[in-house]
Structures are given as C-alpha cells and as structure tokens.
Amino acid sequence: MRLTVNGIESEISSPPLTPLLHVLRDELDVTSPKAGCQQGGCGTCTVLVDGEPRRSCLTPVAAVDGASITTLEGVGEPERLSPVQAAFYEKYAAQCGFCTPGMIMAATALIDRKGGPVERDEVLEALGGHYCRCTGYVKIVDAVMAASRGEVGDVQDLPVSEAGEPSVEVHGSPA
C-alpha cells in the first residue's frame, strides 16, 4: 500500500485494517490528527482524503490505498500560517487545542468547497461532528467565517523562536 501524505509518498507496512489515524501517527510520525474518542464521534482525527474531510479513525488504511492525505502539517507552518490557522490565532479560537487539528481541517475543506465567504449555519453543519470540550464554539465559528472572508488579521506577533518552535517552556513533569 502507498499513501501520499502532505506531498510525500510512502510505502505503508501497517496491516490493511489499521485505522488511517494510527498509520499516520505511529508509522509515519504525523501526529496532528489526535486519537480522541476513536469511535468517529469527536472529530479531532479528521484529515483530508483526496481533498474531502474524513475521520481517520474510521478509515481502514487499505480503503485509501493510493490516496493523497492532507493533515494539519500540510496546511501551514509556524511562519506561514494558512488563512484558517491565522484566523484561529487572531480570534482566540483554541483553548486546550486538542480539537483544533480536526476543526482546522474541516474548516479548510469547507472554505475550499464553497470558494468564498461561508455563513454561520454552513460552519455549524461542517463542524457538527467536532467536539470542543472547552466549549469555545463561538470563537471557532467566528474564526472560520473570518478566514472565509479573507480576514486573517495581523499575525506578525506570533511567538515563534529562532528554531521555529513555539517559545513555551515546560517546567516539571507534564503528568
């Protein structure tokens, strides 16, 4: 089996029924899709399969053999955010951030589909299967609508270090 993930083609050695989610995370080290509920109910594992958003936890890798997969890693980079990423930053649309990868993939696909400004009810429909347990939905929806209108704001002050890593220091054990 072969997958092209964010433009890079790889031979896949995981068993054919392995969820695409675990192929991405465990075999290819692409960790933005999160293993949330793993029952298709939370949306944080959503990736684009040939441009369409799909739950990677519900997708046996064999069923997408040969497909082109886009994850958050393929959408933008710290110094070059995509419009949706920039709008999420600008509008404070992430709290803990666990749902954010799936939200951004679903929103990116929605804006690509519509090709222009999206209405609030279209965002609610597209993100209807994405849960934010911090319950910050208002800012997320605002961010998607702003991105669709090209209002990405000024992200010059994004805290990025020389090394390209977010300048966050972790003290002590994360546990």
Partner: peptide, 24 residues
C-alpha cells in the same frame, strides 16, 4: 463485510469483533 467502516472500525479497535476474514 466492511462497507464504509463507520460502525465496524470502532468495534475492531476496541476488540469487540475479531474477524477471521474481512471483505473490503
């Protein structure tokens, strides 16, 4: 039989089903 997989994949992940032969 695996059609879309939306029902079977969680069953498989949790170990509630252990197919002998899977038809995709």
């Amino acid at each position: 039989v695996f059609a879309g997989g939306t029902i079977l994949m969680p069953e498989l992940a949790s170990g509630r089903i252990r197919p002998e032969r899977a038809l995709l």
